[in-house]
Design a protein around this nucleic acid. Structure first.
Lengths: 110, 110
DNA sequence: TGTTAATACTTAATTTTCTTATGTATATTG
DNA sequence: CAATATACATAAGAAAATTAAGTATTAACA
């Protein structure tokens, strides 16, 4: 997968996943995205963790630290603003894709 | 249009347009994209012109300088490699969208 | 006829958002 | 017991955009 295209969609992915799954931790997100996309979209840790921190700082995510053995896992959930942002960003992505299909003159498919 | 999503798709847009239209100059590309996308995708000059120069430097575009009145207009066409790149990048975009729809659990629509 | 808008291209500074690399540490599996 | 997987963090650098400023011609309009 030509990963340049992922630019700008990482926040959308994170918010959407949390909306559907309810509660996830970072490492779990990378695996879920890889599985759902049939290995097409592979998130890197260097992109994911800073993105989670940013979404948290912006008030979209709530964090809960849960000890698992000797490690501490950070579970994220959507704040009320995060839920709105998830819906908004998903909608914007759909609009963008439709606009791109018009520009590229592609048949909307699958 | 939340323009962050455009990141990574500009080359695809340029190559695809030239594939369909044959021969275009920069300013014409911005107008065509705006029209085709119903004002949704608005290319900025600061992004477009450097992108054209880069595609040219990489051998994907051929340039022809045409005097129009006292100005010189730069018409771009696809080189043979550019045609291959247009097809490849359009295909990659479609694959990416399909992968995103799986991750976001969206119905492929319109 | 003079000002505004549109046409047409260029480039520099800055910002955003990634990749790559490195670091730390625990847990599982063969 | 070594390798792999789990789990998070962050710094350096690259890529690709935005914003802004510059130059200049042409068309529209009032």
């Amino acid at each position: 997968m030509e990963s340049k295209l992922i630019k700008g969609t990482l926040q959308t992915i994170i918010l959407s996943l949390l909306e559907k799954e309810g509660r996830m931790y970072g490492y779990e997100i990378t695996k879920k995205v890889r599985d759902l996309s049939a290995e097409q979209i592979l998130l890197t840790e260097g992109a994911l963790y800073p993105a989670l921190h940013k979404l948290e700082a912006e008030g979209y995510l709530l964090v809960e630290k849960v000890p698992v053995g000797k490690r501490v896992r950070k579970y994220y959930t959507l704040s009320p603003q995060g839920k709105k942002a998830a819906a908004r960003k998903t909608g914007e992505f759909e609009e963008f894709v439709q606009a791109m299909y018009l520009v590229l003159r592609l048949q909307p498919k699958t």
